[in-house]
């Protein structure tokens, strides 16, 4: 019966310990754990596996940050958030960084007072239909019933698209991906729409993935990326440059396998600056010199993370597409480390 009293007392004790620290970076260091907000389960991006380990593309970003700041990629407390709770969780300080396939939009950045530190996945909203329906374009969907997973920008994009094309539809908003899938497979809706990556991940779990097609139209821009609270720029910088370090590492050919070797004997000054053997970039961030090395070693560079979690080798099977390095014609581009 007194459980919560004790919990409360503990919280008060924790409060007095943490009250002195000012910025999130110091908080995280003092706590020894990174609190990272993720989704409640989207295979490939963030989902607990059968052993309860969080796995996925967004999870890897959190682990890289923890490795950079705390020297331990496992020192992450994953806080599952829904579309409803994620912003409060971040604003109230329950989590330090939100890495939950969240679309970077004007109002979220400006009105809700968050800082998007970058983009780790360029997505767009797509449609999936059964092949048997014989639809080849989203513009043929007049009068269709559309299943939407709520809690994202999906509803708004959908409304805009159908209004712009002057065709009608019937939305069926569903809370979880699993339930939306079940509705779609039972034929309660003709179309399932969410981010194209999510559609691919969903289709991969079907009994007969070949019976369903993704329509060519991508109706929105969905730059997904981690975000932090407005106003704490030191912490924002740490998260931003950890993400950039992963991206730059891929560009420069630094992988989790060769990162130590590269750090020891590289002729390339860019690699040397990235890995902290040259210059004092780590100091400027308030971290040590080897921060980026650890971040890369934790889960690999951007390309490795992509391939391991959502790439073509995985059941989700996403091509790099827009998410290729800029050198390969994609949009993934990190500012220089200097």
């Amino acid at each position: 019966m007194k459980k919560s009293v004790i919990l409360g007392a503990l919280t008060v004790a924790g409060l007095s310990a943490g009250a002195a620290a000012a910025g999130t970076l110091d908080d995280v260091k003092a706590r020894g754990k990174l609190n990272c907000g993720v989704t409640t389960g989207l295979v490939g991006f963030a989902a607990p596996d059968a052993n309860g380990e969080w796995k996925g593309f967004d999870v890897a970003v959190c682990r890289a940050i923890a490795a950079a700041v705390l020297n331990d990629p496992t020192a992450v407390e994953f806080v599952p958030t829904t579309g409803k709770t994620r912003f409060t969780a971040l604003a109230s300080g329950e989590i330090d960084v939100l890495a939950r396939n969240t679309t970077w939009t004007f109002s979220r950045d400006v009105d809700l007072k968050f800082t998007f530190v970058g983009v780790n996945y360029y997505d767009g909203q797509g449609f999936m239909v059964p092949k048997a329906l014989g639809v080849s374009s989203a513009k043929d969907l007049d009068g269709a019933t559309v299943c939407i997973q709520t809690g994202t920008t999906t509803e708004l994009n959908l409304a805009d698209f159908f209004r712009a094309n002057n065709i009608s539809y019937e939305p069926v908003p569903i809370e979880t991906n699993a339930e939306a899938q079940q509705q779609y497979l039972a034929g309660a809706c003709d179309v399932y729409t969410t981010d194209a990556s999510g559609l691919a991940a969903t289709r991969a779990t079907f009994e007969a993935p070949g019976d369903h097609v993704l329509l060519p139209e991508i109706i929105s821009k969905e730059p997904l990326g981690p975000l932090v609270r407005h106003g704490d720029d030191e912490w924002g910088d740490v998260v931003r440059w950890t993400l950039n370090a992963l991206i730059t590492a891929e560009e420069l050919g630094v992988t989790s396998a060769n990162v130590n070797e590269m750090a020891a004997n590289t002729g390339n000054p860019e690699v040397a600056r990235l890995l902290g053997t040259e210059g004092t970039l780590g100091d400027m961030l308030g971290l040590d010199a080897e921060w980026s090395k650890r971040a890369i070693a934790a889960g690999g560079n951007y390309g490795e993370v992509f391939a391991k979690n959502i790439g073509e080798e995985t059941p989700i099977g996403l091509a790099r597409g827009l998410n290729a390095q800029w050198t390969d014609g994609g949009l993934i581009y990190s500012p220089p480390f200097r």
């Binding site: 409640t40 389960g41 607990p48 059968a50 599952p80 409803k84 709770t85 699993a178």
Partner: peptide, 19 residues
């Protein structure tokens, strides 16, 4: 409903979402 994984949360979340 508020992202806690009780019995129903486990079912609707991680288990049904797993491949």
């Amino acid at each position: 409903v508020i992202s806690m994984f009780d019995l129903l949360g486990m079912i609707r979340g991680p288990i049904l979402a797993s491949t």
